[in-house]
Amino acid sequence: MAARMRKFKWRTNTIVFLALLSVAITTLYPLFYVAMTSARTLEDYVKNAYGLPKFFTLESYRILIDNYSLGTAARNTVIVVGASLATALIFSSLAGFALAKYDFPGSKVINWSFIAVMLLPSQILIIPIYLLLSKFSLVGHLHGLMFVYIGTNIPFGVFFLKSTFSAVPDTILDAARIDGAGFFTSFFKIAIPNAAAGITTLAVLQFLGMWNELLYAYLILPDQGMRLLTPALASIGGRYTTNQPLVAAALCITATPTLILLAMSSKYLVRGVSTGIGSS
């Protein structure tokens, strides 16, 4: 193995390890604290906010699900994110594959137009999109929000998958073509399996983006009963500042799926995050 910076001596190693450990504790402790807070009663929290709870209770979670329809919010979130993610991925893969391997007239223009809109800030879009959706009476409907998520996620999706599909060797595709494979056979039988890792990476990134989105979700579904998780959490957190266990439980419900996803797919996330620089 080639020397990187040369390995440190063990004493330096220990110091570096302790430095990293203290950064890790700074990162983890707030989350641990929130999880602890969510599992204790309000009286217990007021008396002793720092120690371990006297006993663990899921009472705050029960209140959130029963009284603040967080169960409905979770269901709506899954519907919106699931449908938008699936649609965006299908459209982006088709376009990405076509742009990578089918050199049709106009492909350059389409490619560049996607890259150009990727750089636009969301504030420019929010007002016209809101007005358009309300013109078509889509404000207050789940599929209004789905349209927004599909539209805003496609440009990066196409950009990302175009480079993924470019890496599929032409020789395999040519061989399949000689055997009589059409577009869809090449797409489903060769391109998708060969690009599975890239597609998974994109799916993870875009899932996180949609799950965590606040502005569109808040504006396009203004009705309390229709709220998605992240805006529901934001409004609970805004109103119940005195009941910290309740706010903490809402935080845990919103954050847990993303943390589980991180644990399961860290490999894909690590690689997806470093891909962004390729473009700059």
Binding site: F104, S107, V117
Partner: peptide, 24 residues
């Protein structure tokens, strides 16, 4: 085949045109 490529990219382009270009 060029036409197939064009039509494969078309859905994404239509979505982006109507939900991003037009709003801008």
């Amino acid at each position: 085949k060029q036409r197939i490529g064009f039509f494969a990219a078309l859905p994404a382009f239509i979505v982006v045109a109507s939900l991003l270009f037009y709003p801008i």
